[in-house]
Structure formats: C-alpha cells, structure tokens
Design a protein around this nucleic acid. Structure first.
Lengths: 137, 137
DNA sequence: TTAGGTGCAAATGATTTGCAATAAT
DNA sequence: ATTATTGCAAATCATTTGCACCTAA
C-alpha cells in the first residue's frame, strides 16, 4: 500500500516515523499496542515513544487507523479498512480477523425502535482458539 | 437484589463497601467508571479508592460484575446479568441498554468455520442518540 | 521560510502493590 | 482466632503536555 500517497491526501507530512509505523502495522496485520510499535520501531531508527503516541493519534483522527480496546487497559491499532471483527483467544492471546458480520439488520432495527443513529459498532469474540481448545485450558 | 446472599454464595465476606458498591451499580443501572463509584461512595462513608478497585476486581473475577471499555482510557462496570449491549452517544455520552442481539447464529458459524470456541462477545454501537441528532452535532 | 513534526523531561490519570492495621466469620 | 479485607503510601503503566529544536514542503 502506498502510504506516501495516503499521507499526502490527508495533508500530513511524510516522515520516516509515520511511514515505518504504517508499514509495520500493515505487515503484522493485526491490532498492535503502542509498546510493540515503540519497541519494534526503536530498533530500526531513533524515535521517542511520545512521537509514536502522537502519530497513532493523528492517524486515528484522520481515519487511517482504527483504535481498539480489548479490556487490557491499553489500546490497540490496526489499519482502518473494511468492517471486520476479531476472535481473541483468552488463553494464548492470539487475534484473528473475521468479516461479514451482517450487523446492518440490527442497526436498522435500532434506528427504528430506539431512534439512535449508529455511526459505528464494535463486535469482538472472546474464547478459545483451535489450538488452545486441545490444550484444554 | 439480595447482595448479601450473593456474596455469601461466592464465599466473599459481607462488608459495607461491597454491599454499597453493588447497590449503587444496581441503582444507576448503567456502566459506571471507578471515579464515579469512588466519589459517590466516599460521600456515604470512609473508603479508599484502592478498596474500590480491589472490590471491582474480585467481583469481576467472580463473574458478579462485567468489565467494559468504551475507548475512554478507563474501564466501566455493570452487573453481569443477561447478554445485552449498549448504544453509546458520541455527543452527550449517554449509554442505553439493548438486548436481543441474536449473535448466536454468528457464533455457531464461527465455531464451524474457524474452529474457535466463543465464550463471550462484546457488541457496542456508537453514534447519536435521539436528542443529539436534533442538535445536529 | 514556516507550519508542522519531533525529542526530552515532566505531568497526568487509571490502576496496582506492599505492608501493617482491622474487621468478618 | 484466623483469614480476608481495608487504608495509606508509594509504585507502575499507558498516555498526554509544554517547550525548545528540527525538518519536510
């Protein structure tokens, strides 16, 4: 994905930190926390953690990233692409994507019955992944 | 609700702090954050914030409370009753309950296709409540 | 050149921990 | 009497802020 073009479109300056962060998030392809991003990017070049937090905030405000919380007391970030959700293993912590949640029907019902206008929703599943079920944890 | 009996059933001691906290959460009937609980309970009797945090943790571990996060950088807690979800107004912050989400079909599909065993899910809707739509915020 | 981006130090806010004192059973 | 619970102080963790310096456009 061409992040230079993307940042340009949003009138955001092209910097090593921004490009590298976006490339890392794209490569890992799952919701990452700030600590992972800080540790990984610091190995590649000189960056301060404050810079990472500021980048995460701007990119989220511009809708380039999506901020998620899985009850861990910290946020995670992923590329804000199509509507999708997550399968979060409570044993090993692995996170898998799923799509096609088909919540539109529910949202329509909410609009009619509650007169609440849904802008976005979060839907996360917690349980045991295939492997952890075998380990009977 | 008889919280004395409930605490007994879980082999948790009956204390003023635990009973008052549970009664407050029951009375308010929406997800409350620690600060609100601390402020409100401190007016009624002498309690330390640490005690409140510890109570929230034990009660959550015992499944009496459910811990929720709405991307505010802090947790909220509610009585862990039936499966239900929330309509969170992005303008005024009001939180309304909804039930009957009918996610079972999706969970069944996840089990078959992904071999992931769903233990629990979160589903939250963010948008504008009836009143805030009028104010065109 | 100049507004936006970054680094460093220090602040904030939510939550946790250690330990001694206290209260519930 | 025994063990869980609480209070207080101090620590920790994620995240933010202020301000001077730097750099992409």
């Amino acid at each position: 994905m061409d992040f230079t073009k993307l940042l340009n479109k949003h009138d955001l300056k092209i910097t090593q930190a921004r490009i590298s962060l976006l490339e890392l998030i794209e490569k890992e392809n799952k919701p990452l926390d700030s600590q992972f991003l800080i540790d990984t990017l610091k190995q590649k070049f000189k960056v301060d953690k404050v810079t990472i937090f500021r980048i995460l905030n701007v990119l989220t405000e511009h809708g380039i990233l999506r901020k998620l919380e899985f009850g861990e007391g910290k946020a995670r970030y992923e590329l804000n692409t199509e509507d999708h959700h997550h399968l979060i293993c409570q044993s090993c912590g692995n996170i898998e994507d799923i799509s096609d949640c088909n919540i539109e029907a529910l949202e329509k019902e909410i609009k009619q019955k509650k007169h609440f206008l849904v802008k976005l929703h979060t839907l996360e599943f917690y349980g045991l992944c295939k492997d952890c079920q075998k380990k009977s944890n």
